[in-house]
């Protein structure tokens, strides 16, 4: 129990720090605001209980909110993403049994599985973020561009970090 979640707990704090100290302040052409912290939600083990999945996602969202003066915004998006996770795993194809200690990453599930799994969830997260942040019909085009660009960039960062950690594991 301790071993399975120790790494996740560490990742929880590291990702919040990385998000609020670096990523939120890096300007990549105006529209792009990658939210790498969702990596935490993606990487929680398959067998994580539902309540823990939802509450830890809520907490990491709230943690990011605390530092960006946007109370509740990231929390709402993260909880929505966590809620969809079990459904997406079922659709993408869950491993037959969890006995092999499989993790929802590229190493265990393959690149294509991880890509579709991460892409759907990141898009859902950024969609809620965009809708709640400030929805105005007049700005629908701008919101759409932000949504696509930021989600793609988050996905890119997630996959890069996934490969970075994988190499170290071997």
């Amino acid at each position: 129990m301790n071993n399975t979640y120790g790494k996740d707990l560490l990742r929880f704090f590291l990702l919040i720090a990385l998000q609020v100290l670096l990523l939120d302040h890096v300007n990549l052409g105006g529209y792009i605001n990658p939210n790498l912290y969702v990596f935490f939600i993606l990487l929680l083990p398959f067998e994580v209980p539902g309540w823990l999945l939802l509450i830890s996602s809520f907490l990491i969202g709230l943690g990011v909110d605390l530092f960006s003066n946007s109370t509740g915004l990231h929390a709402a998006a993260s909880v929505f993403m966590a809620y969809l996770r079990p459904w997406v795993i079922r659709k993408a194809g869950a491993p037959a049994d969890y006995e092999g200690n499989l993790k929802p990453g590229i190493a265990d599930m393959g690149f294509r599985w991880f890509l579709s799994y991460a892409a759907i969830l990141i898009l859902a997260h950024h969609l809620i973020l965009a809708l709640l942040d400030s929805f105005r019909f007049a700005e629908a085009g701008m919101i759409f561009i932000r949504l696509i660009v930021s989600s793609s960039f988050t996905l890119l960062l997630v996959i890069l970090s996934e490969y970075l950690f994988m190499r170290r594991r071997k």
Partner: peptide
Amino acid sequence: YRFFFLFLVLEVVSVVLIANKSYYQRSVIT
């Protein structure tokens, strides 16, 4: 349906937090 209800509760809490924090007034907690 506890998974769904917990989801609902957490979303409501988040939205209340968003709604309460208009840019003019921020709570004592913040």
